[in-house]
Amino acid sequence: MRRFIIRRLLQTIPMLFFVSVVCFAMIKLAPGDPVLSFVTPNMHAEDIERIRHNLGLDKPAYVQYGIWLKEVLQGNFGYSLVNHQPVLQQILDRLPATAGLMGSAIGLAVLLAIPLGLWAGANRNRWIDKTINFFSYLGISVPVFWLAILLIYLFAIHLHWLPSMGMRTIGVQSAADVIRHGILPCISLAFGFLAVYVRYIRSSTIGQLKEDYVQIQYAFGSSKTTVLFRHVMKHVLLPVITLLGMSMGDLVAGAIVTETVFSWPGIGSLGMTAVRGMDYPLIMGITLLSSVLLILGNLAADILYGIVDPRIKGAR
């Protein structure tokens, strides 16, 4: 396992290099000029060129990339063109809000998806399976922003049960207040994750129920519930591990639409602000860190595969 982890870590190096090139190229090809953020109406052309030179934007693209990559490797993601604050510090300040929201949504989705997917697969083509499938297709099809607006109208405006936006009530610093503000965005995010997870678990359950070990357990007198939750569940967790690894990138990128609708002060809303202000260093920082976390999440998923399934560990 140690050799496998080292090999996978080495494989991530060229991948990270490719991701950095793509991130830099996307920003360079984007419309607009970063220098315009510093230009005032009465500024002379010589002053504009001086700003361009100080920012290093008068150099060839490959030289700019080399300078940027060197700074990134040293932990310096540059400064925002809008508020002139360090990019990395802004991301780290917003990271707890996004990580808490995304972690809660993913955790809730997994806790609900495992029993629902198992029961749907065990009752294939029956009414319970068709009902769960209906809501799964609904969760995949319904736009997140539409669901978020519907929840706001129902629970915040009509019933007055929950707050509609923000992360805290002004003047209130309790954890219960944060939880109340996070219920609606968490449900909006969890509904989409839940639909995907249920489909994967249901499909895996149907395949596992055809295996010989299931028939042996029934022959020994095990109940349907025991077979599902004690034996089949161990095997259907493998696709869930993959999905969780692929969700790691969301811990930085966040749910951009959801955070914007609910005014949640996370990285998603920070990214939207950066896009509207053409804040290229901030956009590059968020994109790069999201890609790094996604790659590390896939690596963690591969390692967990070996822990959960000894056969995979032995093959490696």
Rank of each mutant, 00 (worst) to 15 (best):
L243R: 02
A97D: 14
I51W: 10
V144K: 13
G314L: 14
F145G: 01
I13C: 06
L57D: 10
Q74S: 07
L101N: 00
R94V: 05
I283A: 01
L95E: 08
V178N: 03
H231W: 05
Q64I: 08
G56I: 08
S164M: 08
Q215N: 13
K210N: 13
G245N: 03
G166K: 01
L228H: 03
D58V: 03
L69Y: 11
G100F: 09
S20Q: 07
Q64G: 11
Q208I: 09
S290N: 00
I283T: 05
L288F: 14
A219G: 08
L108R: 07
A97K: 10
S174R: 00
G277W: 09
V22K: 12
G297K: 09
K59T: 06
G207P: 02
I179H: 04
G139A: 05
L108K: 06
K234S: 12
M272N: 01
F191V: 14
A301E: 08
G56H: 10
Y213G: 05
V110G: 01
I149N: 06
M15F: 14
G117V: 01
P34D: 09
R124W: 13
A315Q: 08
R202Y: 06
L282R: 05
I67K: 14
R2V: 13
L95Q: 10
R2H: 13
Q64W: 10
I13E: 10
I114E: 11
T225C: 02
Y200S: 06
V257D: 05
N298F: 13
I51A: 06
L289W: 07
R180K: 10
G207M: 04
M272R: 03
R199H: 12
V172T: 12
G171Y: 09
